[in-house]
Design a protein around this nucleic acid. Structure first.
Ligand SMILES: [Zn+2]
Ligand SMILES: [Zn+2]
Ligand SMILES: [Zn+2]
Ligand SMILES: [Zn+2]
Lengths: 150, 150
DNA sequence: CCTAATTGCTATAGCGACTAGAGGTTCAAG
DNA sequence: CTTGAACCTCTAGTCGCTATAGCAATTAGG
């Protein structure tokens, strides 16, 4: 209806142009009709769909989960058990990551605070990396808990 | 000295065999001598080096930072400013991620709690994803703050 | 109507830090 | 000496994008 170019859709949704095309390529976003010259022309439904995806990404859902949630929202009469389950799973995951990061934060704080800022050989940062026994607690108890990313 | 196979090194260090080979391939871990048949033979220095890397990874440092920290620890007479700087940068990054995840956690909690578990059309989870105005605060204020990963 | 600037198109490769698999070789125990 | 576990290299896949190259279409101004 509104006939949006991909750039306009990007502006309105807050999702970058290449990302929009990427979403289409993996089947996350419906492929829109094209102009006579082959350019994508979106409507308000696409905008809504894209905002849904963006919001979900901001809340940390993976694209697979968002696909499932999208599918569910297209069937409004069904019970919402599955949607709630996905959200609870996501919450648990976020809590797990926070716990891991908190443990890491405490250790980083400790090593930064305790360094007397002399030479490398006496540097608490380097010493701690060389020897986990200088750590106060257990960060990352399971192998590879929680970091990286933007 | 101790002549460790890659499997033994993996066990002792807690780093998986393919990851050890990967580290060597990108120059993170010194390439060890080989047995007559071409298999890797490590010593205690390799083990120490690998534990350093692993500990650093657990604390969330990127491999680039760890390379820099490794280089520094090889020059014990230099001032530790740079090492401390890397650690403080990492601490700031971790704090940033925690803040982002906390915001996300609050919203996820909110949507899960408020759902009355009826049909999808009335599901607070789906509704919230469709409309950020149902959120209480601002999660992910800058574009793309902080999730994913194990 | 014509031109120039902007925006759009496809296709491919790269990021970080691994992980998985195929298909073959070496080693160590019995 | 035989067997089977552990090792080797190489390639491709993961996740969610982002960047680049080399074009084509659109749009605003004159
Ligand atoms: Zn220091
Ligand atoms: Zn530690
Ligand atoms: Zn619900
Ligand atoms: Zn929101």
């Amino acid at each position: 209806m509104t006939d949006l170019s991909i750039g306009r859709l990007a502006t309105l949704s807050g999702v970058k142009v290449p990302t929009i095309r990427y979403y289409e390529s993996i089947g996350m976003l419906d492929a829109p009709p094209r102009s006579p010259g082959g350019q994508r022309r979106y409507d308000d439904d696409h905008l809504e769909q894209l905002r849904f995806i963006r919001h979900g990404r901001e809340l940390g859902f993976g694209l697979d989960d968002l696909r499932a949630l999208q599918d569910l929202s297209a069937r409004p009469d069904r019970p919402c058990e599955e949607a709630d389950g996905i959200a609870r799973k996501q919450l648990a995951e976020v809590e797990r990551r926070i716990a891991g990061l908190e443990a890491v934060r405490r250790e980083l704080e400790r090593m930064v605070e305790r360094c007397s800022h002399g030479v490398v050989d006496e540097c608490r940062v380097i010493q701690t990396l060389s020897d986990h026994h200088l750590c106060a607690g257990d960060h990352a108890p399971d192998h590879q808990t929680a970091l990286r990313d933007t």
